[in-house]
């Protein structure tokens, strides 16, 4: 139930990205953001299917992929549980880095920059540094 509330899978059938990869990416995203952490149970295949209408085999395949990467582990009869977190201290809701970024964004807005301008600038700097 915990996982179900925190990970709300959204499938975009037209994206061209394989459905199971979309699931994998969304779980990783949730792990990165710290929305789910070690010990949390992922939604069961049935829960995901009931919400998204996708093939349960796809859900199982995504979970197998996450298991292969060592992120989750199945516990027979109980479900699939998160093994390790991908969250780094910087991305948590109350981290100072996040506060800095918020501040920076507010300034950009005051300067009259639009979403696309911010995105372009952010991406340019991101590419420069990473």
């Amino acid at each position: 139930m915990e996982g179900l509330r925190l990970i709300d899978f959204r499938i975009d059938r037209r994206s061209g990205v394989a459905t199971y990869l979309q699931l994998v990416n969304q779980v990783k995203q949730a792990l990165r953001l710290g929305l789910v952490g070690p010990g949390d149970r992922l939604p069961t295949a049935k829960d995901v299917v009931a919400r998204t209408g996708i093939n349960p085999n796809t859900v199982l395949k995504a979970y197998r992929e996450l298991e292969r990467e060592g992120l989750v582990e199945p516990r027979p009869g109980l479900g699939t549980f998160v093994r390790r977190s991908l969250a780094t201290p910087g991305v948590a809701e109350d981290s100072p880095l996040r506060g800095d970024l918020l501040e920076w964004m507010d300034r950009a807005r005051q300067l009259g920059m639009g979403r696309e301008d911010v995105e372009a600038l952010f991406r340019a700097v991101l590419d420069q540094r990473f």
């Binding site: 499938i11 059938r13 459905t19 069961t44 295949a45 049935k46 299917v49 009931a50 209408g53 996708i54 093939n55 349960p56 085999n57 796809t58 859900v59 395949k61």
Partner: peptide
Amino acid sequence: LMVAVAETGVTVVLSTHVVSDLDGVCD
């Protein structure tokens, strides 16, 4: 249908002539 597959493990065959209907549904 997909919930039934998840619940019961039933093997499903669906015919269609509109492939896009089944993208993401079939394995």
